[in-house]
Amino acid sequence: MVEPTVPVLVVIPTYEERDNLEPVLSRLHAAVPTADVLIVDDASPDGTGELADALAAADPRISVLHRAGKAGLGAAYLAGFAAALRGEYQFVVEMDADGSHPPEDLPALLAALDDADVVIGSRYVPGGVVRNWPMHRELISRGGNLYSRIALGVPIKDITAGYRAFRRQVLEELDLDEVSSQGYCFQIDMAWRAVQAGFRVREVPITFTERERGRSKMSGAIVAEAFWRVMCWGTSRVLRRSHGRDDAVSGGPVRA
């Protein structure tokens, strides 16, 4: 099990999450009191950044990275990863600010790093639960995961999930400068790169609950980006296989 003294940084991107931020942080520190938090705010017009600054001033475990404007989820996480690697953090966590990723499940994600390099909080493995999501959203999510799983040839049930924990080594060894995906395609991209690099990816069940406050950032453009990029990656994989060069899943490097 991950020792409580191991430095852990939870990266939480925010854009107009003022009503959700404080309750999520309270639950997070109740679950893992030693975790540090980096809030990456994209100049939220609702004052989320100012609230984050006030919370950081009152709690040394919280810090804030202000960005000039809304530049996408992927870019926010990459900025957070860069900050984590400048520090001594050994484990880095992705978590949404809207409460859909239960902080109470974070100890299970961290514990699973005992025998994994990337741990995904999964809605679609046994024990995973989805609550209060409109049927069309769940169908899009399940369809996107099935499509990605088939196209990329990976066994990950919830490759679009945004609640996950990384060992520092993963972020150090992946070429993050090449990652340009946004939206939930960023999550597919990161998992796909980890699999290709031979890192051990494990899923643990979580209870995902649709946000109670604020608006979802999902859009048709986000879905279209994911569809297009996965199609390109899948086509490239098929071409590599046809030339005997596919090491993405079987026959590739395996981390000890």
Rank of each mutant, 00 (worst) to 15 (best):
M1K: 09
V2N: 01
E3A: 14
T5A: 12
V6F: 11
P7Q: 13
V10N: 03
Y15C: 08
P23A: 08
A31P: 09
A31S: 14
P33W: 08
A35I: 04
V37W: 06
V40S: 06
P45I: 01
G47H: 01
E50H: 00
L51I: 03
L51P: 00
P60R: 13
P60V: 09
R61D: 10
I62Q: 02
H66I: 09
R67M: 14
K70A: 15
A71N: 12
Y77T: 07
L78Q: 03
R86T: 10
E94N: 09
M95W: 07
A97S: 10
P103C: 11
P107S: 05
A108S: 12
A108L: 13
L110K: 12
D114W: 07
V118L: 07
V119M: 01
I120E: 08
I120G: 11
V125R: 02
G128I: 06
G128M: 04
V130Q: 12
R131N: 09
N132V: 08
W133M: 10
W133Y: 14
M135S: 06
H136V: 15
I140R: 15
R142W: 01
R142L: 11
G144A: 12
I150P: 06
A151Q: 14
P155I: 12
D158S: 15
D158W: 05
T160P: 00
A161P: 06
G162D: 04
R164T: 01
R168A: 05
Q169A: 13
S180N: 02
G183K: 10
D189N: 08
R200W: 02
E203R: 14
P205M: 03
T209P: 10
G214P: 02
G220P: 11
A221Y: 10
I222P: 01
F227S: 11
W228A: 15
L239I: 06
R240V: 01
S242C: 14
D246A: 05
D246P: 03
D246C: 11
